[in-house]
Simulated scan of single mutants.
Amino acid sequence: MASAPIAVHPPSPTGGRRVTARNQILGLAHSDRDVVEFLRRAGLPDAEQLLDDPAWVTWRGGHAHHYEAA
């Protein structure tokens, strides 16, 4: 099975999580709202529904939906 095309990386030491789509950096998210906006800009209009779908999004390190500094 292929891995999810979107990755939300572990929280950085200063807060926020890098978001990538197929290894292309979309931005540094500080909330789910940021992730959704990055995904919309990448052409996924129903992004809110994808955040908890493991076929689309992999949350790496830390807990999903948490953006505080590591």
Rank of each mutant, 00 (worst) to 15 (best):
D53F: 07
I25L: 15
R18D: 13
S3R: 14
A47R: 08
H66A: 13
D46S: 11
A64D: 04
F38Q: 04
P13K: 15
F38E: 00
D46A: 13
R17Y: 02
P45K: 12
G62A: 08
F38T: 03
A55W: 11
W56C: 10
A4Y: 08
R22A: 10
A64G: 10
A21Y: 11
Q24F: 14
V19D: 00
D52Q: 12
Q24L: 14
E37C: 11
E48N: 14
A70R: 15
P13L: 14
R22L: 07
V19K: 07
Y67M: 09
D34G: 06
P54Q: 01
V19N: 04
E37Q: 13
L51I: 02
I25P: 07
R17M: 02
G15I: 01
D34P: 11
P13A: 14
S3P: 06
S31H: 04
H30K: 13
E68R: 15
D53H: 09
R60V: 05
L39C: 02
A42D: 12
G43Y: 05
T20I: 02
D52H: 12
H63P: 03
L28P: 00
S3V: 08
A47Q: 06
T14E: 12
Q24E: 15
A70H: 13
H63C: 03
T20W: 07
V36Y: 09
I6L: 03
A47P: 04
D34L: 06
S3L: 08
N23A: 12
L28Y: 03
T58M: 11
I6E: 02
A64H: 07
P10E: 09
T58Q: 15
D32W: 11
H66C: 11
L26D: 01
G27I: 04
E48G: 09
R22C: 03
L28W: 08
S3D: 12
R18I: 09
P54H: 09
H9K: 15
A4I: 00
P11T: 07
R33Y: 01
S3E: 13
R40W: 00
Y67A: 06
G43E: 05
M1G: 13
G61F: 09
R22T: 12
Q24T: 15
G62F: 14
H65E: 00
V35Y: 01
